[in-house]
Structures are given as structure tokens and as C-alpha cells.
């Protein structure tokens, strides 16, 4: 489903963020990408949604080369991937329900479908009663749950979660991990970039370990070892 082929990213003048990275992700897999800060986890995810372009190598997603995607096709690619960011990136002028509905709206889904889907998605993340609140009125954990709700609202094939628990306390961290597992069980591919040992070890899923931009370990049912 996703192929990283000899991927290298060098930021001028000579900062190597990724160095000849190659691995594949199968449909409905749960993959943890782990490593220290600066190991290249975020760069890897940014390349998958074409925020960054590789210096060399290719990323194939759904048979298409993401690294050479045109600006016209870029929104279409991003609609196939749900992204959860460490800093949530919610639209501050929109309510919780409007944030969740946003991607469905830009995809042109019908009003009826949106009206039916949004409450049930908010139900999954336990925020039915916060539908009309604005992000600024929510706690960090709640905002991250809204971000997850937004990422899954349009049923993308893949969810990318970039340090989703980085700003959260242990209770909210567990809650977010539980949600990601639930989304995976429902049939979505999940790629989780994290440096949280506890999270990785409790998941018991595939672990790809990056160090200084290189893949140093790739294990099924792996552990966090650096």
C-alpha cells in the first residue's frame, strides 16, 4: 500500500534528515515509527502527505508516486490520509462539530450524511457533549480527540499520527492510544510516529526504528529499543 524506496532528504547545506530509507506498509497494518527527536520520523510523515519533497528516492501510495504529485492532485492525496498532529492543528474559528465536518464538506459530501456522521464520530471519541464548543474551550486531551475525530471523519485509508501524545498527561495518552487501536481494528492503516516508550511497548505492533535518518530496526511485534 505504501512504499518508501531509497528515500533521502538533505536540508541545505548538509543536514541529512533521512538517509536511504526503504520499507513497505501493508493495508490495515499498525506501524510505529520510533526514534529520538531529530531521527527523521516527522520528515518521513511530512513526505507522505507531500509537505516535504525527497532529495532522492520515491514514495508510492496507492500506486501513485507522491514525490512527483502535481499541485492540482495534492488536495486529493491529502483527503485519502487522515493526519493527527502533536499540536492538534484545529481550526480555531470553528466549533468541534464544524472541525470534524470540515474535511467531509471540502470533499463535497451531502448535508444529510454529514449531519448523521458527525455525532457518531464524536461519540467514538467521547465528545458528543462538546459538539458546539470551540477548540479554545477544550483541554489538550479533548483537542487531540477532536483532531482524531477529524482525521477519521471521511474514512481515509491511512491515519498518520505524529507524536499525538507528546503534549498529553498519562491518562489522556492512554485514551488516545485506545482510540488509535480502535480505529485500526475498524480496518484503517495507522502509522504512529512517537518517542514514547510506554506507548510503543503497550501496543505490541510493528516497530520501525530510525536513528540519524536511517532504519536501524524493523520488527513485527517490536519493542522500543534505542
Amino acid at each position: 500500500m505504501i512504499k518508501f524506496q531509497n528515500l533521502t532528504k538533505v536540508y541545505p547545506p548538509k543536514c541529512v534528515a533521512l538517509d536511504n530509507v526503504s520499507f513497505c506498509i501493508k493495508p490495515n497494518e499498525f506501524v510505529c515509527v520510533v526514534g529520538r527527536s531529530g531521527a527523521g520520523k516527522t520528515t518521513l510523515l511530512k513526505m507522505l502527505i507531500a509537505v516535504e519533497k525527497p532529495s532522492s528516492g520515491r514514495i508510492i501510495f496507492g500506486g501513485k508516486d507522491v514525490s512527483s504529485i502535481s499541485s492540482k492532485d495534492l488536495p486529493l492525496l491529502r483527503r485519502e490520509i487522515g493526519v493527527v498532529f502533536q499540536d492538534y492543528k484545529l481550526l480555531q474559528n470553528k466549533t468541534v462539530a464544524e472541525n470534524v465536518a470540515y474535511v467531509m464538506e471540502i470533499m463535497g459530501k451531502g448535508e444529510d450524511e454529514i449531519r448523521r456522521s458527525v455525532p457518531s464520530i464524536l461519540g467514538i471519541v467521547g465528545l458528543e457533549d462538546k459538539a458546539n464548543n470551540f477548540p479554545v474551550q477544550l483541554s489538550g486531551g479533548e483537542q487531540q480527540r477532536v483532531a482524531i475525530a477529524r482525521a477519521i471523519a471521511h474514512r481515509p485509508k491511512v491515519i498518520l499520527a505524529d507524536e499525538p501524545t507528546g503534549n498529553l498527561d498519562p491518562y489522556n495518552t492512554k485514551e488516545i492510544v485506545r482510540l488509535l487501536k480502535k480505529i485500526h481494528e475498524l480496518g484503517t492503516t495507522v502509522i504512529l510516529a512517537t518517542h514514547d516508550k510506554e506507548v510503543v511497548n503497550c501496543l505490541d505492533e510493528r516497530v520501525v526504528t530510525l536513528e540519524e535518518g536511517k532504519v536501524i530496526r524493523d520488527e513485527e511485534k517490536g519493542r522500543f529499543i534505542i
Partner: peptide, 16 residues
Amino acid sequence: KNAKEEISTMRLVGAS
């Protein structure tokens, strides 16, 4: 100016 972040988020979630 405050919309800068919002515009970047909109682009990331696939808005044309």
C-alpha cells in the same frame, strides 16, 4: 495574520 495557521491546516487536510 491569525488566519495563517488556519490556512496551513486547511491545506494539510486537503482543502483546495
